[in-house]
Design a protein around this nucleic acid. Structure first.
Lengths: 187, 187
DNA sequence: TCCATTTCTTATCTTTTGTTAATGTGTTTA
DNA sequence: TAAACACATTAACAAAAGATAAGAAATGGA
């Protein structure tokens, strides 16, 4: 059984970076293979296209791991930006150095080598399940349950895109849920 | 660079199973950790709930890898059934034996140990990107492009659920696309 | 070949979403 | 404090999707 405490011990050995809101960890086009552990604050990944606005792909609050997956997994340049949306502190390590850590630090060997892989895969797989089996409203309810430390903290417009809907639609969903819960719409 | 040829060599050493249409490889609730390589035919994973019909989660044509991910990644019982929807031939191996293969067979060591992991993650990650950035219609167009050997072969109702929409809606999308392409609707 | 079953399409209606824009409501900062 | 800005909500309309049902087409067996 792996505890966050163990993961924390591991990342304590790594590079610490403290940034202001708005700072970018990874830019589109970059190919550096880095892993990040969010110790404090929040990070969002987003995609920019010519025609439309930024579209947020994922939000990473404390104790979440993110990285340039396009580079790490697919050996391609990053398609996303990764930006702090709060004053944020992260632990960073180069991905290729990452697995060496296990050899050099016997005290962190409690952490299964594939733990990070599984965690990241877990994120993606669970999201796909949400898109296939749940309605947008159910998806939001699940998100509130799974990420109570994100909802009400990150802007709703970010959460909306994570859920695959527009901010306007999410606002209506929230209003709909409030009506259901209280029995009557609060004007 | 890993080629399908190499993967094929690897799986040639494994258990071969040939089944009829309708046979089930993995049942909901099972915890066996197995990897499958589809050599011929097609497999679908699906979820059954009390109220609604089966909902197809994914389709695996030739040269695709599938497995009991709920067990392999999360150490939980499978939530899905995995069923052949055509006469199908698969190569099977127990997941824990899988990585031993690399040690015992130097001739297949060209295959990166993490290749399978990356492939499976790729599937999930790309799907999430589709759900976040594309409309249902665009998602279908992309699916046709990415899986031409599935479209027109597997029932559309399966593909619809994979794309997160209803079979009726997919039928309308197909009709809409046909109208756009030909300029006029064929009655 | 014929019948039964499954799948796909079409229609109707309701609900939800996307889009755009206007209006509130805070927050920041100059 | 006032102005500027970002975000959330609401409204109005068009477009799309869900649900249900009926009919057409395709498929599979006997």
């Amino acid at each position: 059984m792996i505890k966050l405490k163990h993961l924390l011990v591991l990342f304590r050995h790594l590079t610490i970076r403290t940034v202001e809101k708005g700072e970018v960890f990874i830019r589109k086009g970059e190919t550096k293979k880095q892993l990040f552990f969010v110790r404090r604050g929040m990070v969002r990944s987003y995609h920019v296209s010519e025609q439309s606005e930024d579209i947020t792909f994922q939000l990473f609050p404390e104790y979440h791991i993110f990285g340039n997956l396009h580079s790490i997994v697919f050996d391609k340049p990053s398609e996303f930006y990764y930006e702090a949306i709060e004053p944020t502190k992260v632990y960073t390590i180069d991905y290729d150095d990452f697995f060496d850590m296990f050899l050099k630090n016997p005290n962190v060997s409690v952490i299964n080598k594939t733990y990070v892989t599984k965690r990241v895969f877990n994120q993606a797989f669970n999201r796909v399940q949400g898109f296939v089996f749940l309605s947008p409203e159910e998806r939001y309810q699940k998100y509130v349950k799974d990420f109570p430390n994100v909802v009400g903290r990150a802007p709703d417009k970010y959460i909306a895109h994570v859920l695959g809907i527009t901010p306007v639609s999410l606002s209506r969903i929230r209003s709909r849920i409030a009506t259901k819960v209280s029995g009557a719409k609060v004007k």
